[in-house]
Amino acid sequence: MEKKIRILIGKPGLDGHDRGAKVIAAALRDAGFEVIYTGLHQLSESIVEAAIQEDVDIIGLSILSGAHMTIFPKIIDLLKQKNAEHIIVIGGGIIPEEDIKKLIQMGVKRIFTPGAPTNEIVDYINSIIH
């Protein structure tokens, strides 16, 4: 059996706008990935724990509430603490350019801003995993 790419799509924090997260999750499924969706309103701790148990290659976080500068660093930090730095973190949401730069420096691999076509995200994932 071939290896399947596994991705966790998470919605940390309190905003309920899961339209983007769900569209991405469905598109990733249609691209042949196994997508674990953890639902709304998740603590960073639960997301990281789920990612570890599911042994995912990537965590994709959708954050539209403006809390990205709090949540991304926390996730990166928890992954380090739990020896799971091999899990790649990417994100999507309404995130200004200068914050994106900071997040990339902290270890977030890539941020997709609104309007990014789903096939671009799929291609990107294929390119970093293979």
């Binding site: 499924r29 249609d30 691209a31 969706y37 953890t38 639902g39 789920a50 599911e54």
Partner: peptide, 20 residues
Amino acid sequence: SPFSGGALLGDRIRMNDLAL
């Protein structure tokens, strides 16, 4: 999914009480 070979795994949503 028989068409794409991908899957959406959502059972964890219901089991969030146990996650931690």
